[in-house]
């Protein structure tokens, strides 16, 4: 058992190797990528990043992604909070079936819905807006948020509610003042997961946008197919999409494992 640490170490190496390769490529010129095979950049260059930060068609993609992800996280968490409370504390007609129905939407393949989504959002005049993508992503993020929050809320003893009501708190005041601070870490983790799934999704975001709200991931696929394959810029764009995720992980690092278990351990 002395070499037990080797297993995670090898696994982490396996995880980091492809990412290192991407970073490595993003720091090379396209000529160097195609001409010589090298484990590290010989002519270190930041030109690829400069292209992205100066070309509006590139950096607007990041801004668009950020906007709809933020809207989605806000909607998901604020709508899911009361719903999760209801599921964890009360029983009502059809509660189990409603919960199951919500979960099926988390499990349904987006490809099934992509087909009519375009027409649905066009007909209400929301096509190619940030709010459309944010609402579409609620399809799988809201159920997930309810699921995680319900897990965390069930861990809070019911006595807390009862004592607060005896002390004369009204429900909204109790919820904001006492309950929310109690599950603060749960809310953080939920926001993290909503961020994560909205940030990584491509199919719906691509279907629902054309120009004004086009996410960075869709811009990247366009470049892969159309232009003469500028590997360096493509790699740099990829590296830049990894950064926000890394930042967010840092904030929830202490609760991340519990969050992945959906608050139920």
């Amino acid at each position: 058992m002395r070499f037990k640490w080797l297993i995670p170490a090898i696994y982490i190496l396996f995880l980091l190797l492809p990412i290192y390769w991407l970073v490595n490529m993003s720091l090379k010129t396209n000529d160097e990528i195609l001409s010589v095979f090298s484990l590290w950049p010989h002519n270190l260059t930041l030109d690829n990043y400069r292209v992205i930060f100066t070309d509006a068609s590139w950096y607007s993609g990041y801004i668009n992604s950020m906007i709809y992800v933020t809207i989605n996280v806000i909607i998901s968490v604020s709508f899911a909070l009361p719903a999760a409370y209801a599921f964890s504390r009360y029983s009502f007609v059809g509660d189990k079936h409603l919960f199951f129905w919500l979960l099926t939407n988390r499990m349904a393949p987006p490809a099934v819905f992509a087909l009519p989504f375009f027409q649905l959002y066009s007909s209400i005049g929301l096509f190619d807006t940030h709010i459309a993508v944010a609402i579409a992503h609620c399809l799988f993020n809201l159920p997930l948020a309810v699921w995680i929050l319900e897990g965390f809320m069930s861990g809070v003893p019911k006595e807390i509610d009862e004592t607060a009501f005896i002390d004369g708190y009204s429900w909204p005041r109790f919820f904001v003042r006492i309950f929310i601070p109690n599950i603060a870490s749960g809310i953080g983790v939920t926001a993290f997961f909503c961020f994560m799934f909205s940030w990584v999704e491509l199919l719906l975001a691509r279907t629902l946008t054309a120009v004004n709200a086009k996410p960075i991931s869709a811009i990247m696929t366009r470049t892969v197919s159309a232009s003469g394959l500028d590997w360096g810029v493509l790699a740099a764009a990829g590296v830049l999409t990894i950064l926000p995720g890394t930042l967010v992980i840092w904030f929830v690092r202490n609760h991340i494992a519990k969050g992945f278990a959906l608050g139920r351990v």
Binding site: P116, Q119, L120, S122, S123, I124
Partner: peptide, 8 residues
């Protein structure tokens, strides 16, 4: 709102 696209 036009609902033709739903093709009922």
């Amino acid at each position: 709102m036009n609902l033709n696209w739903m093709a009922w």
